[in-house]
Simulated assay, not measured.
Amino acid sequence: MGKIILENIKLFGFHGCMPEEAYVGSYYTVNIEVELDFSQASIKDDLSKTINYIHLYRIVKEEMAINSKLLEHLAQRIIQRIKKYRTNLIKYTKIKICKENPPLQSSVDRVCILLEDLRE
Rank of each mutant, 00 (worst) to 15 (best):
V108F: 08
I78R: 02
Y57M: 02
I95E: 03
K84P: 03
L104Q: 04
I66E: 13
T93H: 01
C98T: 09
V60Q: 03
R81K: 14
H55Y: 01
D46K: 07
C98G: 07
Y53P: 04
P103S: 00
Y92D: 14
I51G: 03
D45G: 03
A75R: 06
I90C: 09
E62R: 07
I95C: 04
E100D: 10
A75K: 04
K49S: 07
Q76H: 05
N101S: 11
T50I: 00
K99L: 05
I97R: 04
S48G: 03
N88V: 14
H73G: 14
V60D: 04
L89W: 02
I90Q: 06
N101E: 06
T87V: 14
D46E: 11
R58C: 08
S106M: 08
K83S: 14
S48Y: 00
S106V: 14
T93L: 09
K69D: 15
P102D: 03
K61S: 13
K61Q: 13
K94F: 04
I66S: 09
N88T: 15
P102A: 05
K94C: 08
Y92R: 14
P102H: 06
I54H: 05
R58T: 15
Q76C: 02
S106E: 10
N101G: 06
K84I: 12
A75M: 08
L56K: 02
T50L: 00
L70M: 13
I82V: 15
E62I: 07
D46F: 03
Q76M: 04
I90M: 05
Y57S: 12
I66L: 13
N88A: 15
M64E: 05
N52E: 00
L47Q: 07
L47D: 08
S106D: 13
T93V: 15
L104K: 08
A65W: 01
L89V: 13
V108Y: 02
I79Q: 01
N101H: 06
Y92K: 15
A65Y: 00
R77L: 06
L70A: 14
A75P: 11
K99M: 05
L89N: 09
K94Y: 07
V111M: 08
L89Y: 10
L56F: 02
V111Q: 12
Y85V: 09
D109C: 06
I95G: 09
M64I: 07
N101I: 00
Y85T: 13
